[in-house]
């Protein structure tokens, strides 16, 4: 029971934690301070509470598909924000960097709404039941601590890179995280029957079971899916390639003044 709770909290924390650590590293690279993170955390927590309190009415929207639609919208929005975070870094002028804290903060806040909302609902069950809340809270705290340690590990691994390598690493990591967001959102719309479901094209559970801890980490970081359909694979790859493509295009425009229409 206690182990279950640690795993539940860890699963929900991991994704946000990794995202926050990469964002913090980007912020560190451009010396943006960390006040944006505090605002994002506050906004995210308030949003998560609001989401959890209204989950009943959210769930009943769109013929009982409200949860899927709202969660998918949150994740598609995070993808868009991460794309902007990557492109803004290659603008070539410092003007665009001013928007980074706002973009990163919004992405973090939305990720916390998505994952934190479910945790609030989970814990509300213990409050109603009355029993074991303290037990559950302690286990949850351990899960949270493990999740945050993973984030810290990721942050310091990035901090060890040279400033030349770190920007590229950020972009690659963010592309995969964002691709994972799009994949998860698309799966939710398949679950809601808004997007057609197709058969899985492979099953890599023998190699890396999705339910294992490593599988869960892979799911949280880059949207690992052991049994993807062709549609899911195409959506995932297109999301990553679109993001990489736009970054490369932006870099080319910034490097060549004759192509840069804004100057």
């Amino acid at each position: 029971m206690l182990l279950n709770i640690i795993v539940i909290v860890l699963r929900e924390t991991l994704e946000a934690s990794i995202l926050i650590s990469v964002m913090l590293s980007v912020g560190r690279h451009y010396r943006l301070g960390i006040s944006w993170l505090f605002i994002a955390l506050m906004a995210g927590l308030i949003g998560a509470l609001f989401y959890a309190l209204n989950l009943g009415s959210i769930s009943d929207m769109f013929d009982y598909m409200g949860q899927e639609v709202v969660n998918a919208s949150l994740q598609y929005t995070i993808y868009f924000l991460l794309l902007m975070v990557c492109v803004a870094q290659y603008h070539g002028s410092s003007k665009c960097l001013r928007y980074l804290p706002m973009l990163m903060g919004s992405a973090v806040a939305l990720a916390i709404v998505r994952e934190g909302g479910e945790l609030v609902v989970f814990y509300s069950g213990f409050l109603q039941g009355g029993a074991n809340f303290l037990n559950a809270a302690t286990s949850g705290f351990i899960g949270l601590a493990i999740g945050m340690s993973a984030g810290a590990l990721c942050y310091y691994a990035l901090a060890a890179l040279s400033s030349l390598q770190v920007r590229k690493t950020h972009i690659i990591l963010l592309c995969f995280i964002a691709g994972g967001m799009v994949l998860q959102a698309t799966q939710l719309l398949i679950q809601a029957d808004w997007i057609p479901a197709y058969e899985a094209i492979w099953d890599s559970n023998w190699l890396l079971p999705e339910s294992s801890i490593t599988g869960q980490i892979a799911y949280a970081v880059f949207g690992y899916e052991a049994t993807p359909s062709l549609l899911e694979l195409i959506v995932y790859l297109s999301a990553i390639l679109l993001m990489l493509g736009l970054v490369l295009l932006r870099r080319k425009l910034a490097a060549d003044p004759s192509l840069n229409v804004e100057k």
């Binding site: 989950l55 009943g56 769930s59 013929d63 009982y64 598909m65 949860q67 479910e118 609902v121 069950g125 109603q128 398949i190 679950q191 809601a192 029957d193 479901a197």
Partner: peptide, 11 residues
């Protein structure tokens, strides 16, 4: 997530 005393539809 299916809240207490409620129902949910999953395709």
């Amino acid at each position: 997530v299916i809240l207490g005393k409620r129902k949910g539809v999953i395709f």
